[in-house]
Simulated assay, not measured.
Amino acid sequence: MSDQQSTLRHPWELVAHREISTKLRDKTFIGSTVFMLVLVLAAVIIPALISGNGGPDKIAVLNDAGAKIVQQADAINGDFESVRVADRTSAEEAVTGGDVKAALIPADNGYVVLGDDRVDSDIQNSLREAVVNIGMEQNAAGAGLTPEELRANTGLHEELLNPGPLPEIVAEFVNIGLALAFYMTALGFGMMIAQSVVQEKESRVVEILAAAVPIRALLWGKVIGNTVLALAQILVIAGASLIGLMVTDQADILGVIAPVAGWFVVFFVLGFVALAGLWAVAGSLATRQEDLGSTTLPGQMILMIPFFFSVFAGSSAKTVASFIPIASSMAMPGRMLTEDVLLWQPLVAIAVLLVATVLIVRLGASLYERTLLQTGRRLGYREALALKTS
């Protein structure tokens, strides 16, 4: 014990060390971390494996010309394979029987694509482009031109005036993922903080701790210890995501996500510290585990409302939310993925969040000192504010 005290000079360090060591031995904490790792890896790897192992889309054709078109469509976009059938009737049977996704049938003015109840848009577009390309090559040869000469001055290129850092679907997916990571981590660790405070009150351990360590040191130890654990858990999950992206050949996404991830860490730490103080207060207001349902409700609302707001609100509303403390921890990193955000905006949001975090932690410390040693009944927030500091 003396060696540990010489290494940990401040009381809050001893409490933080105790929080971290206790959690690392907690089977529930280890199990939840492993579950989140498996969930993240599954979310990244399984869709890629499914799409990669589905095999090529089979297209029924009647002759070599049709097979050439399917081969050209495969080179243009996607994974297609031609299946030779005898006639249109056989092609229709293959389509309705599910043996092929579609059939390519020669017609008077080109080709007809047969589908069952519908034709997949990717298949239709790829076959159409292949038919046009092969037709142009044949027409060019008949006119004594090369395909390049025939296509001269016909290029069409896309130019975006306000390009996003990522494709829209990918950006929205990552946006939800970042907001969900903050929400789940803050909620999970928050409930653990509140529960640990109540357990210490129920077992009277808190009275022993308060006699040896200043109450504010107890609070700071819990906040810092759990912040370190939460950040470590986020980094481990990020590492699992990195492995998943590398395994599924999606590493190009990292070049865009990595800079935003750094901002996310800053927003995460500030937002988590502010909330951790409130969760500790929620535990100090309770006298038994059953009381946590009501004392933690404000903290759950503070998390839940900004989460749904940052995910489902419109662009203007998200912009406003990205400057509001706590909500900014979820909204601003997502905006930086989906919009061209100027540098001053995240800097201002961090400054506002930092000021709010200091004020919230100071208020939480004051309430924690007033309520930690109050036993016998559950206290309300208004009643806690009216108590005098002991």
Rank of each mutant, 00 (worst) to 15 (best):
T287A: 11
V352H: 01
G277F: 04
S294A: 12
S366V: 11
R288S: 13
T371F: 09
A282S: 15
F312M: 01
Y368Q: 11
S310W: 03
S294K: 14
L278I: 13
T296W: 05
D340W: 15
F308E: 03
L379R: 04
S322A: 09
P306Q: 01
E290W: 04
E369F: 00
M330A: 01
I350N: 07
F312C: 07
R362D: 10
G299A: 12
F308R: 03
L285Q: 02
E290Q: 06
A351H: 02
M301K: 03
G364A: 13
F307A: 00
L354R: 02
I326W: 03
A331V: 07
Q289E: 13
F309V: 15
E339R: 05
T287Q: 11
V341H: 07
T287G: 11
P325H: 03
G299R: 09
L354F: 13
E339Q: 12
L297E: 12
A331F: 02
L297V: 15
S316G: 13
E369W: 06
L285C: 03
Q374S: 12
T295L: 01
A313T: 12
L373N: 05
G364K: 11
F323M: 04
R362I: 12
M336G: 10
M330S: 02
I324N: 07
K318F: 07
R377H: 13
V348A: 08
F309S: 14
R335Q: 08
L297Q: 15
Q345L: 09
L347C: 06
V361P: 05
P346Q: 06
L342V: 15
L354H: 05
I360H: 03
V361L: 06
I326N: 00
A313W: 11
A313K: 08
V361W: 02
L297R: 11
T296C: 06
L297C: 14
V355P: 00
A356S: 06
A317M: 14
L297A: 13
Q300K: 10
D291E: 07
R362G: 10
R362T: 13
L278H: 10
